[in-house]
Each structure stands twice: as C-alpha cells, then as structure tokens.
C-alpha cells in the first residue's frame, strides 16, 4: 500500500493564481522521490501541503492511512512527528548547540510541560548522540550552530529530522546553498537514510543530474501541474523540455554527461 497519496490536490494562494492544480501521485514506503521543476512551479507549496504547513484548497492527501486535511490539532501534531522536514536554509536555532537543535526533533512527542522544561529522557539523548555520530558530527556536538559550515548545518538538519523517527522526510532544496562537495555528502546521507532505514524521501531539487543520480523516481512539476512521473531512465531530453520549457538548454548538457559516464 502507498504510504503517501495525493488525489487532485489544488492550492490557490489568491484568486488570481493557482500554485497547484489537480496534483495526483502516490509514493511507496521507502521510495526516494525527487521533485524537479522551474522556479515558481509549486514544489515548495506541494511539500508544505503534505504536512499541512499550508492548507490545501481542494483534493485529498492520505498519509499512512489517514486523511491529512481531516485531522484535528492534536492528531495533526502526531502526524507531523512522523514526517521530518529539511530546508534550504537549514532553519536551525543559531544560538543553540548542535545537540540542543537535534533534540528539538523530539518535542513533538512530549507533553507541553516536559517540552517547555526541556526534559529529555536518557534514551532520547542516547539516540540523538548516535545519530550525530552517524552523520559525522561528533566533534561539533557542543558547538553553537552559528559556528558550523553550511554542510555541517544541513547535517544537523538531517539529524533533527531523524531523531523524530520519521516514516518520511520532506526536503525542500536541501543542497541549493551548498558547494558540490558538501552537496554530495548531504545527498549521500539522504540516500543512505532512505535505503538503510527504509525512510521515504521526497526531495525538491534544482539540479536534474543530482535527481537522476539519486532517485528511484522523479516527478516533474510545471506551473502547478505534474508533467512527468517516472523513473530516471524515462527522463529523456524531450521530457526535460516539457518540465522546464525553453530554459532547459543547459540541463540537457548535464544529461549528456550522465550518458557519457
């Protein structure tokens, strides 16, 4: 059964424009899905509709057997604990240490009071340390996050998502502010997390070649519509043209590199 299913999802921010129109697709458990499309296509909007950071205008989203839009406040909170999220600008609390930021991922599981007081169990702390070590950040555990490089910050972001024990992680352009080296490290981690822990990944990307290399499946979005949905092998230059329109010139060069290697 599909872990996530979007049925005819529509989102209008205002009457003038529709950010998403009639989007339908489903994602299996453990799948690594990349979402590509030109700027303003609605990729971020789509991702944020899934965990209801944005309310949809129409259609339905099913996650793990429940209809997301029908959840009350309490159940929505529970749902969000099962969905991690990673951002282009990391969105960490800069003045706090790495471990404190990672432990924030546990807040959704705690009572308001325990969360307010910051009472984390020994088990939670142990798990946080294990994840930090797994991501190669053990030397920075007690560093403040504003002292880290971009790649390190993004790894803290991944750790914060992982400590939630999520079934799925949504990544909104996780490597858009990183250099190629750090990008590779981050993408490798995401791929490992997906394969090793069976966590479903939905990753918004700007780089077609990265999407081709890492994904099980690629979804192409243009002007709020899904215009491509298939395996990397099916993404031919013509289909890239469909997704990106006339801007696709450079991207096809990237594709050529892949075919050459």
């Amino acid at each position: 059964m599909a872990l996530l299913e979007l049925r005819n999802v529509t989102k209008c921010y205002n009457s003038a424009s529709t950010a998403l129109s009639d989007v339908s697709f489903s994602v299996r458990e453990g799948e690594f899905v990349s979402v590509i499309g030109p700027s303003g296509a609605g990729k971020s909007t789509m991702l944020r509709c899934i965990n209801r950071m944005i309310e949809v205008t129409g259609g339905e989203i099913y996650f793990d057997g429940v209809i997301v839009s029908k959840l009350n406040k309490r159940d929505l909170r529970k749902l969000r604990t099962k969905i991690g999220m990673i951002f282009q600008h990391y969105n960490l609390v800069d003045r706090l240490t790495v471990i404190e930021n990672v432990l924030h991922g546990r807040l959704g599981y705690k009572s308001t009071l325990a969360g307010v007081l910051g009472r984390y169990s020994q088990e939670e702390k142990g798990q946080a340390f294990r994840i930090i070590k797994f991501l190669g950040l053990n030397e920075q555990v007690y560093s403040r996050c504003d002292q880290l490089s971009g790649g390190q910050k993004q790894r803290v972001g991944i750790a914060r998502a992982l400590v939630q024990n999520p079934k799925m992680i949504l990544c909104d352009e996780p490597i858009a502010s990183l250099d190629p080296n750090a990008s590779k490290i981050i993408m490798d981690h995401l791929r490992n997390v997906s394969t090793g822990m069976g966590i479903t990944m939905i990753v918004n990307l700007h780089q077609v070649n990265v999407a081709l290399k890492y994904s099980d499946r690629i979804i192409g979005v243009n002007k709020g519509k899904v215009v491509f949905d298939g395996s990397p092998a099916e993404l031919t230059p013509e289909r890239i043209y469909d997704i990106y329109g006339s801007e696709s010139g450079d991207l096809i060069v990237d594709l050529g590199e892949r075919n050459a290697s």
């Binding site: 965990n51 950071m53 909170r77 529970k78 749902l79 969000r80 604990t81 969905i83 991690g84 999220m85 951002f87 969105n91 960490l92 609390v93 706090l96 924030h104 991922g105 807040l107 959704g108 599981y109 705690k110 308001t112 969360g115 307010v116 007081l117 910051g118 914060r160 998502a161 939630q164």
Partner: peptide
Amino acid sequence: EALMASGANWWQIVFQA
C-alpha cells in the same frame, strides 16, 4: 515554522527556541 513542522507546539517553541 521548522519546529512547527516537527510537531512542537507553541509553548515548547517559545521556551526551547
């Protein structure tokens, strides 16, 4: 918003972040 997305509530975010 990132903390909201992980399921933390308003009071927790205020006191922890």
